[in-house]
Design a protein around this nucleic acid. Structure first.
Lengths: 218, 218, 218, 218
DNA sequence: TATGAATGAGGCTTCATTCAT
DNA sequence: AATGAATGAAGCCTCATTCAT
């Protein structure tokens, strides 16, 4: 169940494997239930080792949570790294970045939920993690580069704030996943059909492009 | 804190007052700590009655949570009711609706957090509450009316989906509040300065207007 | 539900009716759940008055229990009073008394259960109730009379102890009802079919008659 | 009290010993107070471990009760196993079985009380326990064998139902213990003097023998 | 490196009962 | 004679965590 055959092969005397196993279960449990809602017992039982090992490797529940949060970030940023935009013209690059982010978030709901949970806790642990901060700054760099190129070519309005743009892209992409349950509960599940999701994604791309466009286009 | 002078006057034999008092504390505690993180004891101690009364009126922790969720919705939708858009031309009305929603969400962080928490729990309780569903459908009606008027005047592109539009407006307004802690932790608190918030709001208004605009404007 | 139309007619200003109503519900609840298992709230809710009235009339849960126990005894002994054995010859009278007791117990399972519960509590309340002791002594008198007549006629062995005989009659009649659930659970419900019950009753009558018979019959 | 010297020796890291200790206290407490009347705290305090261990090993109060019920049955049936009747002629064997059962029940009042309590709860838990059903069926076998032998020798009337006979034996033996408090309360404690108990036992043996005897003896 | 047994602290909930009218 | 609101005490149970090996 969720463990690859490689993981299953053998594990005694494989500390790193044990740790990875625990972390992957932990991410899933914390993402599903929040920090207080998650149970150390449940995490342990879904693991191939015992509860004692969690304390052996991670100290306490909070230590496990912190490491699970980092693990979730690392995994998701790995996926982002594959995106190469340098060879595309600015508008195309931006459109692709937005579409990619939208899809990428959809594919990583556990990551989204970890961030939701962090926000419930006022991002206390996230703020404490240098690892995570570094990862995000890298994400902004990509966007800043596109802006610079677009401005240089006179296609984008001058003075764009990459962080504000990131905010706008994130808002749509994040909300789409984070609030799916409430939105579906209230308005029905149709908005999450594949077709409707493509519309929302295109709508979002369009909105972002409108923001960066020089006002003459208006 | 949050109790009106009328509520403070006297309370023995004032069931409704007691209930309101409990609910208002409950919203604040659940919003701050989530369902599992909130403590019935803590809620009780911040109340002018005892823990026993919580069970007397709400049955159990979950019953209290459900009612607190409804209370949060009711309060926030009351605020929305004050917005009158019928006398404005469609684009102006839409711009105002977006700006209002953006501000309104900022002013009701506890409500936002309750919805976040609900989403962590897959909106199970929200789905079960007819009260909440009704409130939201009403919110869509306002938007549908603006769309219809805009389309009739040839200012908006035909075939707009009010729910998709609501999604876009909510995404920005909700995310702005829900992810403030993580965003601030990573990029610094500047984006939440009053000035920067106005920029984000305007940017959002602009993006929404771009979406509804007839494609000739492109 | 279980309330006669007469009881339903009107009740304000009818203290005795209210008390009877409460007691009848109390017997049923205590019989079903034992003293600790019974809930004052449940009793109240099955009553046509409120919980407050229980305390008004019976002081506390224990007071109610005591009165319910007495009520159960009174009701069951009323039934017994109808039995007239004086005109029958001793053996016939005894046979009839046994058969009657057997049936009477079957028809009053709540009474049996009240006695079971009392025994769990070491008959503390029963011992304290003069009412109940008097009722039982009266029951013995009937039996003693039969014994005396049987002995006088040389049909019964001399020196019979009416209490020991009562014990034997009660054992079968009581056990038949009190242990029906466990017996059925283990050996199946067949022993409680009407036909099988008649056999058990006859078997019991026969056993009792054998006990009192003069040893010459052996 | 009730713990063997072996159990007393040492207990850390002795799960089976701990479980046995808890169960023995639990039987005594449940037998004394019924399910609702028993207190987990009280049980724990009479144990050499803590309340927490009860939940560790038995899950909850109900789980403990179920296991205590089984433990009571197992213990009592163990005692019965020692009875060897095969070498006795049928009537003697039956007489001995009855007398033995009578005494055995007297010596195991906690077991009797557990069964009483189960009957108050409609034998719900007893019905669910395969362990207990098996034990009882074994008890019937012994009786069936005696009947078969008695019938074969023409000493017992044909067509005897072992279950009905078991019912009759149980009735007297069980009632003698279960209703001792109420009987003593009403008729005084004399019937439970050793001498009177022997009389009752003999009376019961006689009654059972009379039931199985061929009617020619009448 | 690994583990089954054990646990203190604190969580949620229920109960019989009383208060004020 | 009657009642809805209110409550302290105590119940059962769960949680993260540590001990002994």
């Amino acid at each position: 169940m969720g463990t690859t055959t490689e993981e299953r092969r053998s594990w005694t005397q494989d500390p790193e494997g044990v740790k990875r196993d625990i972390l992957s279960v932990a991410v899933s449990e914390f993402a599903a239930n929040g920090f207080s809602g998650a149970r150390v017992d449940t995490i342990a039982s879904r693991t191939r080792t015992s509860k004692r090992m969690i304390y052996y490797y991670f100290g306490d529940k909070h230590g496990l949570y912190t490491r699970a949060l980092e693990a979730a970030y690392l995994k998701v940023r790995e996926g982002e790294a594959s995106l190469d935009l340098d060879h595309l013209p600015p508008a195309k690059a931006l459109a692709r970045l937005v579409a990619f982010t939208f899809e990428h978030h959809r594919e990583n709901p556990d990551f989204i939920r970890m961030v939701m949970i962090e926000n419930i806790h006022n991002a206390k642990n996230l703020a404490a993690s240098q690892v995570i901060r570094d990862l995000n700054v890298a994400a902004i760099d990509k966007l800043a580069d596109i802006c610079r190129r677009g401005e240089a070519e006179g296609l984008f309005r001058p003075g764009l704030d990459p962080v504000a743009l990131h905010w706008q892209i994130s808002a749509a992409s994040f909300f789409n996943v984070s609030n799916r349950p409430s939105f579906s509960a209230i308005f029905g599940p149709e908005l999450y059909d594949e077709k409707a999701q493509v519309c929302l994604r295109d709508q979002t791309v369009e909105a972002i492009l409108a923001i960066v466009a020089t006002s003459t286009g208006k």
